Amino acid sequence: MYAEKSVVRVHRDLKVHTTLYPNSRTSETIILVNGSLATSASFSKSARYLQPLFNVVLFDQPYQGLSRQHNPGMAMIDKQDEALILLDLIELFRADHLLSFSWGSVATLLALARRPARIRSAVVSSFSPTLNTAMQGYLDRAQHCLGECDRRAIGELINETIGEHLPSLFKRCNFRHVSSLEAFEYAQMLMHVRQVRDLDSAQYMSCVSHIDVPLLFVNGAWDRYAPPEDARQFAGLAPQSEFAAIAHTGHFLELEHKTALQEVRSAVEGFLLRGRVGVCDRRLAMAG
């Protein structure tokens, strides 16, 4: 796919590397928000099926991936900073939709709670408001490995826990990526782990109660760390919420096998395109 790459200035004068996959047949744009320890490259499959429908924007946080080199000596940022960065990107790219994965959903929900006027809908994948026993155990081990800057242990941890259902090729790629990050990135992730543990479910619920756009929560049926039944706790506070459980799939959803990719694609496209029809209907009614 043709890509337009640029480095933009955002919150706190930080620089973010962005990749835009343009679509001349639509004016609608979707921004993808990756999870912790991941870069925008993790959204390759998502971008491929979304680009025929939208202008697709990927980005790396200032401390990671292709953005890291543009922010030497930067101070660490928290999830509120990431939410403000996302709000800046929404304005810069005139985005209409968001799609987030895993802990990238924290910044996404915080941003949506500020009710950005442009956003019309959002997809939140592999995330729940509850830190269940499995997730608490994962965070315990992650906090120790990150604090020790034990690269091998961090890489093995990802594959043994949230990556347990990934095919072997993806596990090898995961290990190479996660075990080769800079010490600053591990310190940044350690800060995020501590912040996430300090945010209880009541705070997530309060955040979601301020969101006024349709939300789709997508979770893998086999995900022990963010299971569908936990995500459904959002239902009472987000009246415009929908839920999709992807069968025979864990935390990494469409990366795990082809059937999962097809089911995630069907759920996401159906949700986003239904919103598009509604917008068109309202515009026609106003014109009439």
Rank of each mutant, 00 (worst) to 15 (best):
G147N: 09
L261N: 03
F43E: 00
A113N: 11
K5S: 14
P52F: 03
I77Y: 08
R197A: 10
G35R: 04
S67M: 05
F43Y: 07
A83K: 07
G65L: 05
V123G: 02
R282W: 13
E28C: 06
E182N: 06
Q203H: 12
Y63W: 13
C145Y: 14
S27C: 08
S241Q: 04
E4P: 02
L20Y: 04
N219A: 09
F54N: 05
S67T: 05
L272R: 00
L166A: 08
L273A: 10
C280W: 14
S128L: 05
A260E: 01
Y138S: 03
A244M: 08
E242I: 00
V193E: 06
P214G: 03
S102V: 01
M1E: 10
P228C: 11
A47D: 01
E256G: 09
T108G: 09
A107R: 01
R141E: 14
P129M: 05
A83Y: 09
L190F: 07
D212K: 13
G147R: 07
F252N: 10
V268E: 02
N23L: 02
A285H: 11
V16S: 05
G147L: 06
Q262K: 13
T19P: 02
P239Q: 05
S42E: 05
H210D: 08
Y63P: 01
V193S: 08
A231R: 01
V208F: 05
G278C: 07
R68Y: 10
P72S: 02
L110R: 10
G104F: 03
R194L: 12
Q262Y: 07
H248A: 15
F43T: 00
R194E: 14
A202M: 09
I246K: 01
K45T: 09
R9T: 15
L110Q: 11
D140W: 05
Q61S: 06
N34P: 11
